[in-house]
């Protein structure tokens, strides 16, 4: 159906999007690359010129770099495991016949619509706060000493907050996938005497494989950039205990005003994100082609 004129029209209609995204991608990237090789600190405007790989060595050799990479991987990995495992269990539960299914769905999905700073502040103040938070009250009721979540276990606390935000997403997608599973297949397995556990592992789980892949891929994209939750809770601390790679770069700009080093960090982050993306695509590519 594509005549010459319609193909030309198609090109024309496609070009604004392509050009805009190209600019949006290339201009900042090129500028970041450029800055990453320059001496550029807002506090010392007279220091200029090329710095070769100085910014990179400064960023990568800094004592926090290894920890930040590790924290980022732990955060992403832990949230993925928690949301996928709990998401499967909850999807299996709320897929079963019950009264008030619509309301249950709405309650389960709600945390996803909460903006990150609100989610983080609710948890920080109303739950984690050792004196006034509900967890503190619960500890008091049980006769336990209050526990300073954000001070003693900052990364775990952030993992809890982020998991709470993303659990609805995983649940909803896995639920959608579950609903497309044919009942006959399961009934047949049941008649043949397959116990629930093997029905789960041999019929349900394989059916969910593709959706789990999608959940992992999309959540990874978003989780690598988690920022607001850290900013309003621990600000990367105490020390650097909850500093992730994005937050480490943010600290270079906001605290040290060191644009050059932050840009080098940005380049490192882009490279690492691409490695993760390639690794993921490869690991799960088979699932997506189907």
């Amino acid at each position: 159906m594509s005549t010459k004129s319609s193909r030309l029209a198609a090109r024309l209609m496609l070009s604004p999007s392509v050009v805009l995204l190209l600019i949006w991608m290339i201009v900042p990237l090129v500028l970041t690359l450029w800055f990453s090789f320059r001496r550029y600190n807002l506090m010392y405007p007279d220091r200029q010129g090329f710095n070769d790989f100085g910014n990179y060595t400064r960023f990568v050799m800094s004592s926090d770099f290894g920890l930040a990479v590790l924290n980022t991987l732990i955060l992403v990995g832990a949230v993925l495991v928690i949301t996928v495992v709990l998401g499967i269990l909850i999807a299996l539960l709320i897929e079963r016949p019950m009264w008030g299914q619509g309301v249950v769905r709405i309650l389960v999905i709600s945390p996803f619509f909460i903006m990150p700073p609100v989610a983080a502040l609710i948890w920080k103040n109303m739950f984690f706060n050792p004196t006034n938070g509900l967890f503190g009250e619960a500890a008091k009721y049980l006769g336990l000493p209050p526990f300073d979540f954000l001070g003693q276990a900052p990364l775990a606390s952030i993992i809890l907050i982020v998991s709470w935000q993303w659990l609805p997403f995983a649940t909803l997608i896995l639920l959608t996938a579950l609903q497309s599973l044919s009942g006959e297949e399961l009934e047949a397995a049941e008649m043949d005497g397959a116990p629930p556990v093997s029905r789960f592992f041999y019929i349900i789980l394989p059916h969910l494989a593709r959706s789990i892949t999608v959940v992992v891929l999309i959540q990874t994209i978003f989780l690598l950039g988690v920022f607001g939750e850290i900013l309003v809770t621990t600000q990367g601390g105490p020390g650097s205990a909850s500093t992730t790679l994005p937050y480490l770069i943010f600290k270079e700009i906001s605290l040290d005003k060191d644009v050059g080093t932050a840009a080098a960090g940005g380049v490192v982050a882009v490279i690492l994100a691409n490695i993760v993306a390639i690794f993921l695509m490869r690991a799960v590519g088979k699932n997506l082609d189907a």
Partner: peptide
Amino acid sequence: WMLSTKMMPAVGVLVPIYLI
């Protein structure tokens, strides 16, 4: 490719966008 533009960590390009 369009999707891949979303993989770019925002903090990596904050400085140039800010300066622009």
